[in-house]
Design a binder for these strands. Structure first.
Lengths: 249, 249
DNA sequence: TTAATAGTGTCTCTGAGACACTATGTG
DNA sequence: CACATAGTGTCTCAGAGACACTATTAA
């Protein structure tokens, strides 16, 4: 433990001088958004980089933060203009700021993650070749391998530190699943308990106990039974539930 | 749900042009550090602002991120130069970026929180009048009231959005306590189970069950008994434990 | 000896997993 | 009808709270 310096505010002048925004070089500040959906597997939206560096590799939708918009507004704008989705669940993930994470200049990136029901990404691949709804696999243990594959199963190379961002997004989601009503953001307005359980199992990359899952969800008080049943399923239909709190959609 | 725009990369040119770091105005990027210790209560280090705006109010130790240092390095540098502590537990908290959180210019602040044993802040008040080891109270429920008081119990006014940062730091700490070995960062090298429990109770602002706490901690496998006992305590002395994993101090 | 806290043993309660059984759609 | 999954009832097991009891130090 270092002793306290004799003059703790020796650098106060330098500190205050720096408030003149034009006087010192400033880093660029960007947002990158991990846009996730879950159907058969975990899906993430990626964009193929058209230019160097990392040309041809795949990156998260991102953009620079404008001077008059909040970080969350920047992330929402990126989702709207680059992917065409809006009004969805969006939450800050982590801020990445290694000095050389981008080879061109200092770029500090505030990463967000966003959740959508699978239907929201339906016509993505039809619309732009450079947009891709990739399948994401992250090993269950922390720090595990991250892989993104296209529809044909071909592994996609990720630009910059975006593999790290993807891993952190999945780990955060896994952690939140236990105590936050996250699964609902990934489902249509009404859904069965089986659908909800499949979402949880896909995110956690492991099977869950059916009885326990049902009890826990019903006891949470977050689900409201609609009285309606699913149809055309080839077996006894399950009851449809909905999430009564205000959805953003 | 908005339809995907016909030309999703209409703004790609603007996006790429912005990579010229000097071409557009950039925000300032700062770090602010919530430096916490726990003894009788929860303590936080604050600095009285010598200049407008918010002159006389109390703020977190902070500073601007230099172009060649990582965010965590900036936070560690601030702790070293402004408070005189180094080599302690430090973790990113959240990034605050409202356009008008600082009235002078656009400042995006990456907040960190740091944990120290109380002894590390011992000669703080003697050293500088503008440095203060304040007592922090945050209501147990999320979004509750945040208060910082000086040694005399006088309430301190907090600058900018620093009350919000303090609240988030305490809430994060409360959340992590359940599953991360956080308490050890706040204790000396050897400690009793009673001391550890008091730390947890202070952070959570509620009493914990003694038996259950002992069982849980011993079962976690994170504590190693030293075989030594505390001394001069006026009652049966408790065994001293240590945390065998590598400490940063 | 007394005060005060450390530490142990055991009972109960609650929630998760396991499993058996019944219910009810489609083909 | 068979098949497949929905949904219920109940047993067991593990962890948390509660509480009684013993242990050990300083004053």
């Amino acid at each position: 433990m270092k002793k306290k310096p004799a003059h703790p505010f020796a650098d106060e002048q330098a500190f205050l001088a720096a408030y003149d925004a034009s006087q010192f070089p400033h880093p660029s500040v960007a947002v990158d958004v991990v846009l996730l959906a879950v159907d058969q597997g975990m899906r993430v939206v990626l964009i193929q980089r058209p230019e160097h560096p990392d040309r041809g590799k795949w990156s998260l939708p991102g953009g620079f933060v404008q001077m008059d918009e909040s970080l969350e507004a920047a992330a929402a704008r990126v989702l709207d203009t680059k992917v065409g989705v809006r009004g969805i669940f969006l939450e800050q993930l982590y801020t990445f700021g290694d000095p050389d994470r981008d080879p061109r200049t200092r770029v500090i990136s505030v990463a967000y993650y966003a959740l959508v029901p699978p239907a929201a990404l339906q016509n993505l691949e039809a619309a732009g070749a450079a947009l891709c709804r990739a399948t994401l696999t992250v090993e269950p243990k922390a720090g595990g391998k991250v892989e993104a594959r296209d529809g044909a199963g071909k592994r996609l190379k990720l630009a910059f530190d975006h593999a790290q961002i993807l891993r952190l997004a999945v780990e955060r989601l896994r952690g939140k699943l236990d105590y936050a009503p996250i699964g609902f953001e990934l489902l249509p307005r009404t859904f069965t308990l089986r659908q909800l359980q499949t979402i949880h199992e896909t995110i956690l990359a492991r099977k869950l106990n059916k009885d326990s899952f049902r009890r826990r969800m019903l006891a949470s008080g977050l689900l409201k039974a609609t009285g309606k049943l699913e149809e055309n399923v080839g077996h006894r239909p399950a009851e449809l539930y909905r999430f009564p709190r205000g959805r953003r959609r």
